[in-house]
Write a protein that binds this DNA or RNA. Structure first.
Lengths: 208, 208
DNA sequence: TGTACATCAGTGAACGCGCGTTCACTGATGTAC
DNA sequence: TGTACATCAGTGAACGCGCGTTCACTGATGTAC
């Protein structure tokens, strides 16, 4: 009831966080669906039964993980939108941001990219929903671009899906990039940049 | 040693095929990584130990499944390339072929789309390799298109990746399409068509 | 401030279950004569 | 064609293991007086 956090709440929060982190790490190593409750508890340093003080099931932990990952993603996009530089050079900026952000939040992006398609039913569904929201948000941003202003909202949505789809695919590539290969990183960024440039080239001649 | 198949070989082949089919079905329901050797054997109607007469492990069965799926895919593309109609209207034809082929080989495509990212290490690796081969094959076809003839091979490869990436993503959508929803099917095909048109529009103005 | 009781995050043991793998076996099919 | 032996796909029982879940418990922290 009180706003003051007591030692008990603090410790509980720490354990909860340890469980989430353990699950994220194990997912990175072997996939979320192959990760067991006992493995998560063990890595978090608690007994398996203690898991139930925090989540009803692994599915519920999975949903908490999805929320956390998309929180990161959304914060990133919000920051990017505030920067006018980004809007003016949307292509180069996107490619740059994508590679940087994915690199800095590798575990989160890896989780989303992997479990989007391979995870349990409920986790997959949650990720799809978040990605749909994201497509709609991006569509609003894209609608303000010069060549797109007068497109039908359907077409803007289509192009937003094309962008997000590529973003996800590029994120997958960065995620699977071996450590310490800056050459590969540059290659992926350049590839992403070219693909987006090619798509944007089509904008000015598009007729629905 | 003989070319004549005797009853024993025939029966063995039948069981092997039953194991593959069972694994494909179970993968569709719950993912390959979550599918156990015992489940596969049970559905194929043999005792678990009999599995080892055909495959050393589930990983090996997974590889056999990948080969079978890409066999289907390659046959499809080979047929498409023979049809001059297809080459002239590459966009509409691609969208059409994609939706049709995926619909008719749903289980195979679902397997590839899902396990490409969620599967076991060895299965994932095999799928990636096959997809890379496919990108290179498609690049050869694309290089003959009017606006692309003079591009650098690097750029052609980039555009081929963009196409295959979209193909995979669209295949995923068809695969997850609920049964008996022809409206959704048309929507996906139309979306795929537009995305490809937009990409192709960029061809004529592209400069590396 | 000090005491007596309540709360509750985490414990540790136990359960039944499905798993992958092994093994000696069976009996139908194939082969040599 | 008929017989005696070899092959080998599939059997069925057994194994040890990690799994999710339950339960009564403990002991540190919080609360009321």
């Amino acid at each position: 009831m009180s706003d003051v956090v007591n030692a008990r709440q603090l410790q509980k929060e720490r354990t909860r966080s340890a469980l989430l982190t353990a699950a994220l790490e194990l997912s990175q190593e072997q996939g979320f669906a192959q990760t067991s409750l006992r493995q998560v508890a063990k890595r978090a340093g608690v007994v398996p039964a203690a898991f139930y003080r925090h989540f009803d099931s692994m599915d519920e932990l999975g949903l908490a993980l999805v929320e956390r990952c998309f929180g990161t993603l959304r914060a990133m996009i919000r920051d990017a939108q505030r920067d006018p530089e980004v809007f003016d050079h949307i292509i180069d900026a996107s490619a740059e941001i994508l590679v940087e952000a994915v690199k800095n939040n590798k575990a989160d992006f890896a989780f989303v990219a992997r479990e989007r398609v391979g995870g349990s039913e409920v986790v997959r569904e949650a990720i799809r929903h978040e990605l749909d929201l994201f497509v709609s948000e991006l569509a609003v941003v894209l609608a303000r671009l010069p060549n797109i202003e007068r497109w039908s909202s359907e077409d803007v949505h289509m192009v937003s899906r094309l962008f997000v789809r590529n973003m996800v695919a590029n994120a997958e590539e960065v995620v699977e990039m071996p450590e310490g290969r800056p050459d590969l990183e540059a290659q992926i960024r350049e590839g992403a940049r070219r693909q987006m440039r090619l798509i944007v080239l089509g904008f000015k001649d598009w007729r629905s």
